[in-house]
Design a protein around this nucleic acid. Structure first.
Length: 284
DNA sequence: ATAGGCGCCTGCTGGC
DNA sequence: TGCCAGCAGGCGCCTA
């Protein structure tokens, strides 16, 4: 499931292969993605040069000359890779962008089709889109005051706040759990009941975990591969995620798994204490 | 404001 | 071995 570190890895790996190249053809599958791909976008893209590829939260942005913006979200199972044109198309490949010589292709593959690809005809349209979805700041640019205020202003639990893309962009289930463990904060703690010190601890942990995961080129649980089709390594460093019942790496108490904010949530009940007892539904 | 539920979607897993 | 329910979860939408 691509979250910020996976998307960042893909963007970094695609950049040298994609920038300065022109799209010479576009093909699509019959199956629709989360947002319907418009046939007219294909004509708009052809002959245009990729000026830059960047990431915003979990979104991948391809900026094309003069002012076209292809915005891709990988959902749960999306893959974006450059492959030689002669390589057989794998099942669930939904979009294929031929690159200038026609020898290679940018391919968007998504088994479960929770992903999307959209074209914006100007930078203004692109900006409007991010305003509409109210995408929050990048974790690395989380202003201390902003972060404290967002936490203080909500009675939602920390897990739910971390997953909210409007508060902070790019965090998904894996890195929410890993950051809360690193910060020694129980995922069910309420935003407005967290001290300023604890809020800063969480911010620091989040940044540390994300940076480490980027260094390891993301986590490959099943589908995820980087822009060159290579798997990530961070799953080897999971402290709590998907480790229910296994000993806590810090205190040896078995890792717990509960359902929170509609998600499986992993933590150590000893290292991440919850002062007041709460009704939490065990899972597994 | 916030929680919870559903639907989208496929592949894998566990129980029988 | 086969079948099927249940689960995984990002996101948008709806209702309470």
């Amino acid at each position: 499931m691509p979250e910020l570190p996976e998307v960042e890895t893909i963007v970094r790996e695609l950049r040298p292969q994609l920038v300065d190249r022109r799209i010479s053809a576009v093909r699509m599958s019959r199956q629709r993605l989360r947002k319907q791909w418009q046939k007219s976008w294909e004509r708009q893209l052809i002959h245009h040069r990729v000026a830059a590829i960047r990431r915003r939260g979990k979104w991948i942005l391809l900026d094309l000359d003069p002012d076209l913006h292809l915005v891709i979200h990988l959902g749960m199972t999306g893959q974006l890779t450059i492959r030689p044109a002669q390589e057989l198309l794998r099942t669930h490949t939904h979009l294929v962008f031929s690159l200038d010589g026609g020898h290679s292709e940018l391919r968007f593959r998504d088994t479960r089709r929770f992903g999307s690809a959209t074209l914006f005809a100007s930078g203004a349209e692109l900006e409007r889109f991010f305003e509409e979805v109210e995408l929050g700041p990048e974790p690395f640019h989380l202003n201390a005051k902003y972060w404290q205020q967002r936490l203080a202003a909500t009675r939602r639990c920390l897990k739910a706040v971390l997953l909210d893309q409007r508060v902070v962009a790019g965090v998904g289930n894996i890195y929410a759990d890993e950051s809360l463990f690193q910060a020694r904060l129980h995922p069910a703690r309420l935003g407005n009941e967290v001290s300023a010190t604890e809020a800063m601890r969480l911010r620091r942990a989040l940044i540390r975990v994300l940076n480490r995961a980027i260094l390891q080129r993301g986590s490959s649980i099943r589908d995820y591969v980087g822009g060159s089709g290579q798997r990530g390594q961070y799953q080897e460093e999971f402290r709590v995620y998907q480790r229910a019942g296994q000993p806590c790496p810090r205190c040896r108490k078995p890792i717990a798994c509960i359902r929170l904010a509609g998600r499986a949530t992993h933590f150590c009940a000893r290292c991440q204490p919850l002062s007041d007892s709460k009704n939490v539904v065990p899972c597994i």
